[in-house]
Design a protein around this nucleic acid. Sequence first.
DNA 1: TAGATTGTTAATCGATTAACAATC
DNA 2: TAGATTGTTAATCGATTAACAATC
Lengths: 222, 222
Amino acid sequence: MTIISKQGKKFRVPDATIHRLPLYLDKLILLQQAGVKEVSSRQLATSLDIKASQLRHDFHYFGGFSKPGRPYLVDLLVPALEEIIGIDVPLPMVIIGAGHLGQAIANYKNFERQGFPVLGIFDVDPRLVGLEIRGIPIRPQSEMESFVRENQVRLAVLTVPVQAVQEVANKLMACGVVGFWNFSPTDIKVPGTVIVRNERLAVGLMCLSFKTKRLGNLELFP
Amino acid sequence: MTIISKQGKKFRVPDATIHRLPLYLDKLILLQQAGVKEVSSRQLATSLDIKASQLRHDFHYFGGFSKPGRPYLVDLLVPALEEIIGIDVPLPMVIIGAGHLGQAIANYKNFERQGFPVLGIFDVDPRLVGLEIRGIPIRPQSEMESFVRENQVRLAVLTVPVQAVQEVANKLMACGVVGFWNFSPTDIKVPGTVIVRNERLAVGLMCLSFKTKRLGNLELFP
DNA sequence: TAGATTGTTAATCGATTAACAATC
DNA sequence: TAGATTGTTAATCGATTAACAATC
């Protein structure tokens, strides 16, 4: 659902395609680590349980990565996808809210490895301030704005209570933040120049409830 | 993407619809708490930033909840949606993996309130075993299977390392688990009689990267 | 060369939106 | 009654899949 221009040309990439790019990259990195040099769209698609034509269609948005007749070169495709996704250049982030979820995210080393270093963690609770998570100190919320400005942070993780989330987001936007990873179970209002990704965990849980409770009268293969 | 039969009739509910049901319920509970008694499809849809016809179309899968000419009654719709989603009856779960994320989920009181009590938490690390989270003790992984069997647990949260996840899932399925909330960044293989919900958090982060890095050359309103 | 495979367009499928009769 | 609103079907839109020429 996004319209972007690249090298002068304008085109639209569906959200569903954007969502699949990290999955492609993931599999390709596994192949690379296994020493595999070439992979066909069919092989890669099969391992992801999708159709090869969908994979090629997705790649086509970005110009294609091989020539007709030749499979993809893993060592060429990995950095190409990394650049497309944007993780070739680190995107530092701050975490607002040092509760259990905020701490869990701060503790997850893979995010840093994948290009998302946590520069700071902030909380209003004075009992949390001063604690360290993987060497990153929890700072008082009052220092958030100056910190974000000084470090030119563009991405913020929101793990604050529902009541606080809009106000926190407003402050952050005023300091230059243009992307939010929102874990609070509510939407935030932002202008069209800001990207929000909502992770409403409870929604996933309820989808599970809906489906598991119907397993008895589910028509599995129609 | 699910085919279910209800009262003899068979019909197919799109995943997109299932996903919206919790959002409807959420707004309706807010309305209920505010003392609102009636709400039209247009009001409810507008507050969720979707079209009223989509909301009515979604409701139509479940038979409709009002009569032509009359708006929806909040006090009638809330329990109806709760029953459809399945949270009218609690769905107890166990958490496998008491790392930071597992602990964060165990700590989140709202899941219990919404009908998903955590019966047990399990981990292989003897240093974690014996600790308590909200009164729920972390148990040794070796007790997982007997516990799941004895308590007839049907839903499991997987917050174990990638290498362990398939084996853990296999064991749990053998003990009667039919739903997985999988936070490990890998797919698990299950038969068609088991539901898996993958929460690959890194994917969300990469979508944010893709989009925020293109904000400069984004055609916002085409 | 023959078989395999990509890039790319066309066909199909499914989800969203519009329209409107029925009804309060 | 007139205006509002639902349930329900039809039209539209967008995403997935199939097909195939080009090419290695």
